[in-house]
Amino acid sequence: MAATFTEHGRATTRRGLLLTAGGLVVALAACAAAPLYFGDYETQILFRFLVGLVLAEAWNLMAGYTGLVSLGTSSAVGLGGYVLIGLLNHSALPLGLVLVVAAVAGAVLAATAAPGLMRLRGLYFTVGTLALAEALRLVMINAERFGGASGLFLDREPPVQSELLWIATGLLAATWLVLLLADGSRLSVLLRAVRDDEDVAAQLGVRSYRVKLAVFAAASALMAAAGGVQALKLGAIEPYGMFGLRWSIDALSMVIIGGLGQRAGPVVGAAVVVISAELLADYPEAHLALTGVLLIVMMRFAPRGLVGLGADIWARRRLMRGVAS
């Protein structure tokens, strides 16, 4: 995937874009077919990877494309989860529609918070999103209507594993569609202009607020849908888990570990985070410390993420080969 993109995350040619789209479709098909050739366990891990990847891609859409570094992923995830369970329990809407409503709820949350949050720049925005997420969690803990600290249970049986995987794959397809639009359409220059220098962009007629709002809303919608899918799988949600800081940290660390603003960053990062969490969980004494150490080492020695590191090594090897010949 990375090969067809320039470092700036933009497809260079129309042909490149088509190739990328083709590659993504193949990847999605492979995911959807996974239950056929994978066992239960691998399918579960793949599901976790897909949900994580959607969050990471959405987070990257905000941070990597428009410079909105958020610590508020959990607010959209939690909201999506609650909307999904609430609607499934209290309405006769079909699941697909419920997921769409959950996504819309995420977008509405973003649109509601935007007039305030968007006034903040840089660090302030980051801290603002964190405060929003915490405030929402505290509201949910105290809101008896929504189950308070005990949370909500899904009345019906959740879909089986393979169906869940298909839903997650569908969500990833939607996510990639959004990203292809952000990458390939004329919109992409606007996004990058806003990220580079918002004031200048404004002076060139870019309605930067709307651009940022669109990105924030789209990312929140995707995150909320991911939260919905996660809640659907759990069948039981409570505010500490659904609105937990962990979601925010996960999304952020996936992208940072993979490589911020790098097209393949979220994929690599999500794979590394999900797989390492799974492997390390077998060593309960050490896994937390190891996770921390891994993060520190990554930051120190691969500041552009694993994708950046790989690209550097690749470039150096080519250079060496060039020198040799």
Binding site: S253, L260, G292, L295, M299
Partner: peptide, 24 residues
């Protein structure tokens, strides 16, 4: 070593430190 590389890298490093400390 991370100074001048933007806010995210040092922030994530300190998050790593936080995890390690809690575990300790």
């Amino acid at each position: 070593p991370l100074m001048g590389r933007g806010v995210e890298a040092p922030m994530m490093t300190m998050f790593g430190v936080s995890i390690v400390l809690q575990n300790l």
